[in-house]
Simulated scan of single mutants.
Amino acid sequence: MREHRWKIMSTTILDSRTFQPLQPAHQLWQLYAPESAPYRFQAQSVEDAQTWQTRTRAALNDVMGFQHLPCVDFEPKVIEIVDKGDYVREKVLIRTTEYSTMPVYLLIPKTSTRPLPVALAFHGHGYGVKDIVGLWEDGNERETPDGIQRDFGVELCRKGLAVAAPEISCFGERQTDFSYLRTDIGQGVPSTCDHTARLAFHLGGSVVGLRVFEGKRLIDYLETRPEFDTTRLGAMGLSGGGMHVFFSTALDERINACVICGYYSTFKDSILAMHHCACNFVPGLHRFGEMYDVVGLIAPRPMFVEAGNYDPIFPIEAVKRSVEIARNRVYRVFGCPERVETDYFEGRHRINGARAYDFLREKIEH
């Protein structure tokens, strides 16, 4: 029998310091330096902060992309009106651009005096806006809060606020039709978020920019409705909806107060540290430092941060650290660190609501 000789290769076990340079992210992390970002918050006085805000808000608009799309007539079409007893739910379609239509649910309390203060309600990942206005994914009515978003649009309405809840781009009725793909020969169907984000990157913008633009158009539309008082305007959202609230409040000064649930922390410890949908990313955002720097575009308006101690994608210690920096480095310049409030609750990635709903109502009615 012929003898086979196998050459045994010796293997060297690399320690962590030797192994790190083999990882591409190791090199990129060396370039991550929010402390030297050109648009980081460095103001030491209110006057300096206001100058910084004007310059930085314009620069962030440009980085987001799609903030200068041509506006068209809204051409509103009311699809349905449903009497829910203590409030009315209206569904309306509005045009945001020549090529884009956005469904919006309006929850209008019956008992409050007109014109009504308004809360923008931005849903996160899931089956879309129905999940925050008391509807199951098949459109059937739901009378008991469910899931991580807990029908928070309905809860805000029952606090006496008119609620405007849009179907955010890439979710629900606004998903891309990929029926042309040859799935029979192995072509997979991408998620709408991922595909739209990559297309937006190719065009020099971001899905975040698209969503912020449409949020602005929604406020423009609400200003045409006499039953709404948009001088008393707030915003609340969870996860991707919290991201929407964060950047929309930073870039649109018409929003008087905001509630950010399951999002506010640091880019380094969350968005850049683990898997997140591509719709969270904005090319060039590093020039604006960390989340607590961007907060300078929200200050001195009231901000509420809600976070669960077992949230796996927005680590609670990073949330707390970022909140303290926002209070002591940013809001203190404006003389109002107390305007950053928190609810650190026991739980995972979800809405809590123990203080958030009352906070938003109080701050926008103040």
Rank of each mutant, 00 (worst) to 15 (best):
R2M: 12
R2V: 13
R2Y: 06
R5K: 14
K7P: 00
I8S: 04
I8R: 09
I8T: 12
M9W: 08
S10F: 07
T11Y: 07
I13D: 05
S16T: 12
L28A: 09
Q30S: 12
Y32D: 15
Y32P: 08
P34W: 01
F41C: 08
Q44D: 14
S45F: 05
E47P: 01
D48E: 15
W52L: 13
W52N: 07
Q53F: 08
T56Q: 04
A58F: 04
V63W: 01
L69F: 06
P70M: 04
V72D: 01
D73H: 10
I81C: 10
D86F: 01
E98Q: 13
Y99F: 11
L106C: 11
L107F: 13
K110R: 14
L116G: 10
G124F: 06
Y127V: 06
Y127L: 07
V129L: 00
D131S: 15
I132T: 11
V133A: 12
D146P: 03
C157H: 06
S169I: 10
C170S: 14
F171G: 07
G172R: 11
Q175S: 07
D177M: 03
F178V: 05
Y180I: 13
L181I: 10
L181T: 04
I185K: 11
G186N: 07
Q187M: 12
V189H: 00
P190E: 13
P190Y: 12
C193Y: 00
C193E: 14
H195T: 01
R198H: 07
A200P: 10
L203E: 15
V207G: 05
L210W: 13
V212A: 13
F213W: 13
F213V: 03
K216V: 14
R217K: 15
D220I: 13
E223F: 04
E223D: 15
T231P: 05
T231C: 03
G237V: 09
G240V: 08
G242A: 12
V245I: 04
V245Q: 03
T249V: 00
A250V: 09
I255E: 09
I260V: 15
I260C: 08
F267N: 05
K268F: 08
K268T: 10
I271M: 11
A273I: 02
H275A: 14
H286I: 14
V295G: 05
P302Q: 03
E306L: 01
E306F: 02
A307T: 00
N309S: 07
N309I: 07
Y310C: 05
Y310I: 00
D311E: 00
F314L: 02
F314G: 01
V319C: 11
R321S: 15
V323Y: 04
V323T: 11
I325D: 05
I325A: 15
C336E: 06
G347H: 05
R348K: 10
H349M: 11
G353P: 09
A354I: 04
A356L: 02
